[in-house]
Computed example of a mutant assay.
Amino acid sequence: MKTYALTVFDKTGEKLLDESFEASSNDEAKEIGQERLAEKGYSEYTHRCVSPEAKLVLFHR
């Protein structure tokens, strides 16, 4: 399992969410990230999910 970082920002650049979670693959991390964003109501905010290798797995601006 790898640890991924999920971060959400508002329009001013303030960080609204900064959490990490574990997933076995980038595809699984993308699904988990999308689920967490939907649960917390952040799907339409600027967000990113980054792998331990610093690869963008999920991004929305």
Rank of each mutant, 00 (worst) to 15 (best):
D18I: 05
S25Y: 06
K55V: 15
A23W: 05
T12P: 02
F21Q: 05
K11T: 15
Y45T: 02
H47F: 08
H60Q: 09
D18L: 10
P52N: 01
H47P: 01
E53F: 07
L16A: 03
R61W: 10
A5H: 11
S51I: 10
F59M: 08
V57I: 12
L58N: 01
S51W: 03
I32L: 13
E19I: 15
T7V: 14
C49D: 02
H60L: 08
D27S: 12
H60K: 12
S24M: 15
A54Y: 07
E14A: 15
V8K: 00
K2Y: 13
L16S: 03
S43T: 03
V50N: 00
D27F: 05
L6P: 04
D18T: 06
R36I: 00
D27V: 08
L37M: 07
F21S: 06
S51N: 02
E19P: 02
R48M: 06
E53N: 11
E28T: 14
F9T: 09
A5E: 10
Q34R: 10
E35Q: 10
T12I: 12
S20Q: 14
G13W: 11
M1Y: 10
F59V: 10
K40Y: 00
E31H: 10
T46D: 04
Y42V: 00
E22N: 13
T12Y: 10
L6K: 05
E19T: 07
R36Q: 05
G41M: 04
A29T: 14
S43N: 03
A38T: 06
Y45F: 13
A29F: 09
L37E: 00
E19W: 03
H60Y: 13
E35I: 03
E28Q: 13
S51Q: 06
A54G: 07
C49H: 02
L58S: 02
T12D: 10
R61D: 08
R61I: 11
L37V: 01
L37K: 00
K11F: 12
A38W: 03
Y4R: 08
F59K: 11
N26I: 09
T3M: 12
E22G: 11
E14L: 15
P52V: 05
K11W: 13
A5F: 12
S20L: 08
L37A: 01
K55M: 07
A5T: 11
E28W: 07
E35T: 04
E22C: 09
E28R: 14
V50C: 02
A29H: 13
S20C: 07
T3Y: 06
L17T: 04
E53S: 13
F59T: 06
L6R: 04
E19M: 06
E44W: 02
A54T: 07
E35K: 09
K15E: 14
F9K: 15
F9C: 11
A29L: 14
